[in-house]
Write a protein that binds this DNA or RNA. Structure first.
Lengths: 196, 196, 196, 196
DNA sequence: CATGAATGAGAGTTCATTCAT
DNA sequence: GATGAATGAACTCTCATTCAT
């Protein structure tokens, strides 16, 4: 691992744990075991480092999710696979994932960070969900629902459970599995159900 | 409004907008149009002010929610009323609500803030939901589900949509109404459904 | 003397001696025997302090010069009195005068300082000289000369000698008196001289 | 042009424009289009580079001036030629001349630069003028004046006009020509003038 | 009650310098 | 000869906090 990579990983940890303002460049340098001057040398300002750290994590997650949903699946199956992949990713990156919870338009983007860039980066997560939901309604696996709101709600559902699991001190049990079931129950098209 | 109240409201705004670390005491004093010495005078340290601001908002919301769910309702109806009250509260306090998104165990509580106190304060939100879900399963309005996980998921669902609505620049449409429908569809006990 | 005044005087000394970039705010605070936080408290940024220090000195000198030249004098006498007052002022403020040599459009105004404000501040020095020269040509005490250039040259002459006296390690003798004579010889209208 | 020369020229530009402290080695390397390591490689420390840049310019000017004044001229003519050559040189090196205004005992030599070396280097400029003035008084072209002060005043006159022309945003017109006339009028020996 | 002068720890950032390649 | 990775001292500026008035 190069020192540059070490800095990026350390930044993901530190920013994830403490947030943009509370984390310090010295802290990042210490975790990466490099001098703090090297951080500026490679990444310029603290803000640029923050975005680099967040976007690197976002890119990794995106490639995970698109891989999970590409294939010959019904829309509902794709949603399930999206969620499964998302939850798995968070568990595999417990330590460095929280940067993504922070460097996200669903969080309070800190004043000194370019909110537009962040919002832009995240549209892909929602768009991918929209695609799944649209497909699902066409192939009959998902009941008729407003696409935009549904995609946002599913995403909120996912992130809500991730937050509960990663951040709170509460005992969360099998929350990830239950969240998937929760969403599937809500989306599933059961012909004649309402009429029962 | 007394100056003390003005400071508390200003703190809710400032901390909500900027977070604990980035917001400054001077900032709060400026918004409240008082000298910054007065802030310490009334609230002591910055941390104490932060907790006071967050807990004041939490208390207001709790009383809103308990009022909404107390009465002769089925468990499912109570969940609906809980969610409706929650969303309504956020809309009525758009400017000062975000402090609660931050000063919450579902967020990254900043290092210098007492996380235990915060977590403790929020158990009541989950417990109230657990009560509704338990009731619902007893009265037959809610299908059999693991109580703890379900309560956490519903709460995550609510907060996810609130975040999407309050924080993101995305067009969210009728996300609150749809979130309620989403939860109700998922929880509703439809006898014989799976067997159809 | 208030602490604010002490800071201003210390700034005049430190900036005069070391220049904007090389002088440090800590240095200024040390000379004024105050904490460096107080410097920001009163003057904001280093740049603002620099301008405040330079402009305070400029204002003092201006009032000195206008007082010296106001009265019933010929143009040439006024120029003499202007120069005498200028030189006297520099000698009375040997320690703190150099800030004016630096914070001046006749010096390299440092990149981070607002050059326009500085240039603006100094027009009064030249304008006053122009007035004297113009009067002198009207009252016959000064020979016909281009006003603008002459005023700039006299000013350059003054500052040149001040620099030589204050800054160089060279032995300068009676340079101030000789500079006045030098200028007077050059300006004096001696009817029939050229024709001799 | 070798890379070493390119660095020297770049240093003259950068130091002239920004001064010793504000200019950076990286800046110089950038202007010279070489890596910043090469600057140390050739010139050692920043201070050494600064002196090399200043002294190179001083040497060029000295050779210009001595060439201009050597020949069969009266003292007054020699002074005129000295001034003419000086002004011409500044105009020919507008971009890189300012280093000499800074790296000069008539300026505030920055604390980290060896002032003695600088003062030493510049004695030749004054000595050359002293020689002209002495000659002029012997050959009768210059009136009786104190040599040392007169040389310093003339030099101050020259530098004053150069500063006015190169550094200020003021419209300076034909200041160089007028400065020469100004000095000549002041020095010229007009027998019987005072007695007229 | 209310103010703001005063302090100094600690942040981000810049930059000369060294040195392995 | 030429490069730029790496270091850390020193800078400016921000800010919570204390305290005299």
């Amino acid at each position: 691992m190069t020192k540059k990579e070490a800095i990026l990983r350390a930044a993901q940890e530190a920013f994830g744990e403490l947030g943009f303002t509370a984390a310090t460049v010295k802290d990042v340098a210490g975790r990466a075991q490099v001098s703090f001057g090297l951080v500026s040398h490679y990444f310029g300002s603290k803000q640029e480092l923050y975005l680099a750290a967040g976007f690197d994590m976002a890119d990794k997650l995106v490639s995970c999710l698109t891989q999970a949903t590409s294939g010959d699946y019904t829309g509902l199956e794709a949603v399930e696979r999206y969620m499964t992949a998302y939850f798995q990713f968070t568990e595999e990156h417990r330590l460095r994932f929280p940067i993504l919870l922070r460097c996200s338009p669903f969080s309070h983007v800190e004043a000194s960070v370019d909110a537009a860039k962040v919002a832009d980066k995240f549209t892909v997560f929602i768009d991918e969900l929209k695609r799944c939901v649209t497909n699902g309604m066409q192939d009959g696996s998902i009941r008729p629902l407003p696409v935009k709101e549904t995609a946002l709600i599913i995403y909120g559902n996912i992130v809500g459970s991730v937050r509960t699991n990663l951040l709170t001190p509460y005992e969360t049990g099998r929350i990830f599995e239950e969240t998937i079931k929760h969403v599937v129950r809500s989306l599933k098209n059961s012909p004649g159900q309402d009429g029962c």
